[in-house]
């Protein structure tokens, strides 16, 4: 990262710490939502942006994580064990969902994950004995940390922010490890990766499992943040929204999900000036954004500041070029 990038991150970090002291509870709630969705989007960026496996089921993993934490804490578990279970559960299910990716790629994989998302929604809605069905689960308790309650809006925001920093740092470290390079090799040219002796099978499953884990952990924070979860919140819309965050932010770029989630959370809120028409305007802005910078906001920034670097190298996994393979 160059000096400009470092400066931007530093300023953003300061803003993330100072802002909650300037905002009313609503503002704090919004940036908390940004933090939680950013974690989920980082996970999807890992699966999609780095490893090139198209998943349209990230919302389902947020849901599974949210339900795991809500149900376990309601059964008397403390938050942290519940949170860890949420992550492990999503790791396991994500690993299983990775198996189709070994057979099919790209748009076909997208369809399988899309179907999976709807199946999860149906289970959450229909298995009332477990999930309380359409009635949802209200009042998930916020955790205690070192004896301190995070019940207040600001305290919980900082708790979530801490989690984001931890998880983002772990992801950063992993992407620089041989694993991360293997993921990128998988995206760029799976056949070459295989011929170089990379266990593509294991890395494909791992990409799914790790991305899903982050989704589940985000869900584990979503439940105590909103303090009400229902199956509808984790339908395809959530997955589409997360996909939008990754692509709009800049897929395959570490800070893409941060920017994408910011846009997806704040832009509709900001557009409410237009009252009844705010969703129309929001949808239009997303379309305009995509038409003018299909590589996302960060792709655009890169293009503006580093015109020499070919932008295609780090671009979204281009399905079109390989649409005819497999």
């Amino acid at each position: 990262m160059n000096r400009f990038g470092l400066l931007t991150v530093a300023v953003a970090a300061v803003a993330a710490i100072v802002l909650p002291f300037l905002l009313k509870p609503f503002g704090i709630y919004l940036i908390s939502m940004w933090v939680v969705l950013t974690i989920a989007a980082i996970g999807l960026n890992l699966t999609l942006g780095y490893a090139g496996q198209v998943s349209m089921a990230q919302g389902a993993f947020v849901g599974i994580g949210a339900y795991a934490v809500a149900l376990l804490t309601a059964a008397g578990w403390p938050f942290f064990p519940a949170f860890v279970i949420a992550g492990l559960l999503c790791f396991a299910i994500g690993w299983l969902l990775g198996y189709p990716a070994l057979r099919v790629q790209h748009h076909y994989l997208a369809f399988v994950t899309l179907a999976f998302n709807t199946l999860v929604f149906l289970v959450l809605r229909n298995e009332e004995w477990l999930t309380n069905g359409t009635y949802g689960i209200a009042g998930t308790e916020r955790p205690h940390l070192f004896g301190l309650s995070t019940d207040g809006a600001r305290a919980f925001y900082f708790f979530c922010l801490g989690m984001l920093v931890l998880l983002a740092a772990a992801t950063w470290w992993m992407l620089r490890s041989p694993w991360g390079r293997a993921f990128v090799a998988l995206r760029e040219n799976p056949i070459r990766a295989l011929s170089l002796g990379l266990d593509t099978r294991r890395y494909t499953l791992m990409a799914f499992a790790l991305g899903s884990t982050l989704g589940g952990l985000a869900g584990g924070l979503y439940a105590p943040l909103v303090q009400f979860i229902e199956p509808n919140s984790f339908s395809l819309n959530m997955s589409f929204n997360l996909l939008l965050m990754v692509i709009v932010g800049g897929s395959g770029r570490f800070f893409g999900p941060f920017v994408g989630a910011l846009i997806a959370v704040l832009l509709p809120e900001w557009m409410r000036i237009a009252e009844g028409y705010y969703l129309i305007i929001y949808a239009m802005l997303v379309m305009i954004l995509m038409v003018f910078c299909p590589t996302g906001v960060l792709g655009l920034v890169e293009k503006l500041f580093k015109p020499k670097k070919p932008p295609a190298a780090a671009a979204a996994p281009t399905l079109k070029a390989e649409a005819t393979s497999r």
Binding site: A283, M284, M287, M290, V291, T295, A316, T318, L319
Partner: peptide, 30 residues
């Protein structure tokens, strides 16, 4: 929508058509 995006792969276009569906729904409603 399609022409400017077609060379950038399937996903940006997927996002755009999702946004388009919201746009059309909301426009008819309003």
């Amino acid at each position: 929508i399609v022409d400017p995006m077609i060379k950038h792969g399937v996903l940006p276009l997927v996002i755009t058509t999702i946004a388009l569906s919201l746009f059309l729904k909301e426009s008819v409603k309003d």
